[in-house]
Nucleic acid binder design. Structure first.
Lengths: 111, 111
DNA sequence: GTATTATATAAGCGATTACTTATATACAAA
DNA sequence: TTTGTATATAAGTAATCGCTTATATAATAC
């Protein structure tokens, strides 16, 4: 069992959850504030925070604080980013989530 | 949450296990008998059988019986095969497993 | 300073996972 | 038809997962 297989399998474990997979796909287009994820996925804030933690621990995303908000972005320097990138190419764009949020006037906190 | 995201996430759940991921990578090169997997992964026969069942249920692999042996192959007609294929391109070849088996004279049952 | 807001972390819990052992099924060889 | 071999399935279990609620931390606004 090569180490590369194991590393890849760990990435797939993370992408094997539809919330996390959507997040990563969304982050391909633009950076997101935690508060936007909370609104979009209609889950509790801790649930979102825990998903993000996993992505952060795997260095798939990176944070940057802006005042009281924390903005996450895709870490394109990740060792396995080329794998991730080629996966994302097969997934439908998820930008409609944020558009919907704006249309419904629910994109509030960080804007 | 699009259905496509959910389908892809299900694939990643399957590939998120290093045994199953190795199997799929190996099947990219050639078909494999269950008994070869059992030898190569040094796990119990039921454990292997259960991994295969998951891959079969997702129609990622297909079986064909040859006498008392069952040979598995990659299902290249799977709806998401292009995704799988592009993933496999990023993984190291695993053919050494079978070579090792042969060198050690442990490739016995189905040959 | 205190209050409020955004995010993270901790603890608990039910569901799921990946194994185990035991058994069933399907075919082969005698 | 009996015996052996390959594979699948069933049942049980410890570990992990993804949520929940409660609380901690960090920044802003007053």
């Amino acid at each position: 069992m090569t180490q590369e297989i194991e590393r890849a399998a760990n990435i797939f474990k993370l992408l094997g959850d539809k919330t996390r997979l959507s997040m990563i796909k969304m982050l391909e287009s633009q950076d997101y504030c935690v508060c936007e994820f909370v609104e979009i996925f209609k889950t509790s804030q801790p649930a979102i925070s825990q998903h993000i933690k996993k992505l952060r621990d795997a260095e798939l995303v990176q944070e940057s604080r802006r005042g009281q908000w924390i903005i996450y972005s895709l870490n394109r320097d990740n060792e396995l980013f080329s794998l991730v990138k080629s996966i994302l190419a097969h997934l439908p764009n998820q930008d409609f989530n944020l558009k919907q949020l704006e249309e419904q006037g629910r994109r509030i906190s960080c804007k």
